[in-house]
Amino acid sequence: MTINKNLNGSELTLGLEGRLDTTTAPELETVIQNELSDVKELVFDFKNLEYISSAGLRVLLSAQKIMNKNGNMKIINVNDMITEIFEVTGFIDILTVE
């Protein structure tokens, strides 16, 4: 998986490519834990994300909890398969998906 970071003022866009699973989730977790202190708007771009596993959902949950305190978080360009995963797991209710 590759993470494309794009910081624009206080808005951070993270473009994810590939698979977000047990092996790659720690990479994203490091970014979330270390680079969100000054971020007010966090955007995940899932345009090139093929798959997300429960380990990946866990990181999204962490990010959402941090951003609930600091500002806003949204996820854009989510494909059908990942939308279904969000629906099944109930994440659709706590995440902002556009």
């Binding site: 959902l57 949950l61 629906e87 099944v88 797991t89 109930g90 994440f91 209710d93 706590i94």
Partner: peptide, 12 residues
């Protein structure tokens, strides 16, 4: 009908 995973948010 689906609720949120257990461990997500305290008030779910």
């Amino acid at each position: 009908k689906h609720g949120l995973v257990i461990g997500g948010f305290a008030g779910a």
